[in-house]
């Protein structure tokens, strides 16, 4: 009986912590919007963050885009060949990439490369009193640290998704046309016929949402590290907050992918 009570208590404590963290993340979003609406407006910090989140993720996105496109081309070809419909290869690859895999894989890559760094950076700034120093200089950390990252995420993830989609389509093309001999015209024409504006729109909406979600969760886990158990653990706490941020961001991306897909 006592172990059941302990279990319920720990479950309750876990739920309270999760709710607190969600509340803080939402509060951070409100603060960021508020700060963005008020002067001074500065472009350079956003460009700098876009370079970090976007430009420096480009190689990873190109490599993973080509690979995913090739794998899709291979799998779709094997399936379509059984039904004698290899001319649908272009349509299959394009719809899979533009609607689902492009935004999701790009967001997951950004989580792994940039999101973890954002959490670690903010966590270290918190434990070395750099955030306190900003506050004491009457500089809003939300404006100075968080807002540029969130805006950069909002803009970079859709741009990276477009790059991912583009190279993935060529990955599928390479496998389908050059390895398995699918007619070039049927690959591209099948794609053009199958993909509608609605598919592109859903892919774009997802990438915008993922961009904000990923940066916001990663910022929140690092920035509010001192309010969690990790806050008292120094370097180990930063490592733990970074792991949490990556896991939470990935789950948030996958879950919101389902939600947007279901609602659209």
């Amino acid at each position: 009986m006592s172990s059941l009570v302990t279990y319920i208590e720990s479950l309750g404590a876990y739920c309270v912590t999760a709710l607190e963290q969600t509340g803080r993340t939402f509060n951070m979003l409100v603060q960021v919007v508020w700060e963005l609406l008020h002067p001074p407006y500065r472009l350079y910090p956003i460009v700098r963050q876009m370079y970090f989140i976007g430009a420096r993720s480009l190689t990873l996105i190109i490599v993973s885009g080509i690979t995913i496109g090739m794998v899709l081309g291979l799998q779709f070809y094997n399936i379509l060949q059984r039904f004698g419909s290899v001319e649908l290869l272009g349509a299959g690859v394009a719809l899979g990439v533009i609607r689902e895999l492009g935004p999701v894989m790009t967001a997951l890559m950004v989580v792994g490369r940039a999101g973890s760094s954002i959490t670690a950076e903010l966590g270290i700034m918190r434990i070395t009193e750099q955030v306190d120093a900003l506050e004491c200089m009457a500089i809003s950390p939300d404006k100075f640290l968080i807002a540029p990252k969130v805006v950069a995420g909002l803009l970079s993830v859709p741009l990276l998704t477009m790059v991912f989609d583009f190279v993935a389509l060529f990955g599928g093309y390479f496998v389908g046309v050059h390895m398995f001999g699918v007619a070039e015209g049927s690959y591209w024409n099948g794609m053009i016929d199958a993909v509608q504006w609605q598919d592109v729109r859903i892919g774009l909406i997802k990438s915008f949402v993922f961009g904000v979600l990923v940066t916001l969760i990663c910022c929140s886990r690092g920035f509010y590290m001192h309010l969690t158990k990790a806050g008292s653990q120094g370097a180990e706490g930063v490592s733990s907050a970074t792991t949490d941020a990556v896991v939470l961001s990935s789950i948030a991306v996958l879950f919101s992918d389902f939600l947007i897909g279901a609602l659209a």
Binding site: E129, Q130, A133
Partner: peptide, 9 residues
């Protein structure tokens, strides 16, 4: 404010 560790960026 001058913090203990400097808190420089």
């Amino acid at each position: 404010v001058a913090f203990q560790g400097g808190a420089l960026f």
